[in-house]
Design a protein around this nucleic acid. Sequence first.
DNA 1: AAGATACATGAGCGACCATTCAAGAACAAG
DNA 2: CTTGTTCTTGAATGGTCGCTCATGTATCTT
Lengths: 194, 194
Amino acid sequence: MPRPREFEPDAVVDQAMLRFWWRGYRATSVEDLVKATGVKPGSLYSAFPGGKHALFLRSLERYSKLIVPQKLGELAASGASLAALRGYFDGLVHDLLSPEGRQGCLLVNTAIENAAEDDEAAAVVRGHLARLEQCMTTALRNALDAGEVRASVDPAGSAKVLVATCQGLMVVGKANPDATVLRAIVDNAFAVLV
Amino acid sequence: MPRPREFEPDAVVDQAMLRFWWRGYRATSVEDLVKATGVKPGSLYSAFPGGKHALFLRSLERYSKLIVPQKLGELAASGASLAALRGYFDGLVHDLLSPEGRQGCLLVNTAIENAAEDDEAAAVVRGHLARLEQCMTTALRNALDAGEVRASVDPAGSAKVLVATCQGLMVVGKANPDATVLRAIVDNAFAVLV
DNA sequence: AAGATACATGAGCGACCATTCAAGAACAAG
DNA sequence: CTTGTTCTTGAATGGTCGCTCATGTATCTT
């Protein structure tokens, strides 16, 4: 009976996610989203009740499920060890130094821009941090078992620090996308482990 | 000859700084600033040519000169050592957990919100990061001399990591202002030094 | 007292914001 | 082909944005 929808909602979320990622929530207008997706306001609002904010939350979820695993790479695997952990940090630095990756991490940006006044967004960020910490703990535990790190390293504790360090790497990278600076941070963060 | 100004420009910058600190640049409207300072738009714009953005840059400078030294505390002293360094981190955690400190650091927030599209703001942030790194390097060097940290600690290198870690602490604290989480980060960051 | 000068005031500017809605269009069922 | 249902469209909503400017006011000089 009904007229079929002419656009793919997931594709709209993808485009919205990219905009929010690059420019932030407040700086991205609905008009921006309309231009980016080709979907007119009326259709947007009927497909996504809750408007801009709902689309933002969908974008965060989408980012978590699409982009985060891609960035985690081997670190997400249960067998991940020191090389995978180091690879994750090197990937972050590489991204921050490339024109396509300067926007950093959508969830870090959201933590700073929205977490204080948007509980739902903050919850997604917390989920991300917990997941990251868990991956890093696993990798460090594997590394410890394999003798890749000092025996005195506490996997759970070091994982907490490394989570904070990689969030900080994003902050520094945004203000100062300099290869020497960022690589020095990563090198020294790992130096204390071996 | 002229009619004297009825407000103190520095006091206006102070109020503006507080607003930008709490809500961010984009979320703070000129109307907010007018309400907060009691200075009407016309007077604001004649006292601060360049409008909102100029006032923002003035706020960043003001924050650097007024708030940062206060937060650095003993860490800014040339004789600072491990206790001062630890005290700085404990202070950050304390602030993030208190209602008056939840906004984090204006310069970290600015790095994420504005650095990518505002070179002048990014420059202020870079200056802050450099200063922080220098203070931490000095403190670590003193700590090394005093035998407060392992002999294998590289003051300059560890300072770079600690700068990133404390920026990351702000990010985590914004999304998850939990005492256990934040203290664990600090504890473990310092555990590797001794 | 009069003039000169800078400041204070707040209504108002065009632009843009997120959002809504009336109207037309495309499909499936009958 | 007609009808019913949902979708698309884009103009229009009231509101807010950063900012300006004409007008009035307070002070210092003469």
